[in-house]
Amino acid sequence: MEGIISFGNKRDYEDFKKQIPSSVLPLFNSIRDFCLSLGDNVVEDIRMHRVVFCKSITFRWFADVEPQREGVIIKIQKSRKEPIEIIQISKEQNILEFGNVIKEAFEKIH
């Protein structure tokens, strides 16, 4: 999986997804796929309880995705000067409802 880097604890996504509730996994996977599809310069950092998506090796993150029991929390950062936006997505919702917000953050982050 080219372009995917894990810093620190060296966990991979296969290991991480074992802790995601099975009812939330399809939503989490679709968010992950969407973030990775934004460009060849997207870097995925698997952390203990969440996955952070960054733009290139400059490591400016644009999406911090954390699974919950009934959905996913995404923290969106468009720039260091703007406040972080927090989105809660329930497992019944579709990532496409929030795709523009994530894509805008990816495009704006430097």
Rank of each mutant, 00 (worst) to 15 (best):
I31V: 11
E85Y: 06
S90D: 08
V65H: 00
D45S: 04
G3P: 11
S37V: 09
I73R: 10
G71E: 02
Q68P: 08
F28M: 08
Y13N: 05
I86C: 11
K18L: 12
A105I: 04
I76V: 10
F7C: 02
V24T: 02
H110Y: 12
E92P: 07
M1V: 09
I74T: 06
K81D: 15
G71A: 02
C54S: 02
E66R: 05
R11H: 08
S22L: 13
S6E: 07
V52T: 06
V51P: 01
H110D: 14
S79P: 04
Q19P: 00
C35W: 01
N94W: 08
S23E: 15
F53P: 03
H110T: 09
S22D: 11
F98S: 07
A63R: 04
R11C: 09
L25I: 11
K55F: 03
K103V: 08
V52G: 04
R11T: 02
I109E: 02
E2L: 10
F98E: 08
T58K: 13
D12H: 05
V24D: 05
E2C: 09
H49D: 11
I86A: 15
T58Y: 11
V43L: 07
F7V: 07
F28Q: 03
S90Y: 11
R11K: 15
R32K: 07
D40F: 09
P26Y: 04
V43I: 15
G3Q: 10
R50F: 10
G39N: 00
I84T: 10
F53I: 04
Q93D: 04
I5H: 12
I86Q: 14
I74N: 01
K75A: 12
S23F: 08
L25Q: 14
S6N: 08
I84Q: 15
E85N: 09
W61K: 02
I109A: 01
C35Q: 05
I20M: 06
I57F: 13
I73T: 09
P21Y: 10
D64E: 13
I46Q: 02
R50E: 08
F34S: 00
C54A: 01
I84L: 14
S56Q: 03
V65N: 02
W61H: 05
I57D: 14
S37R: 10
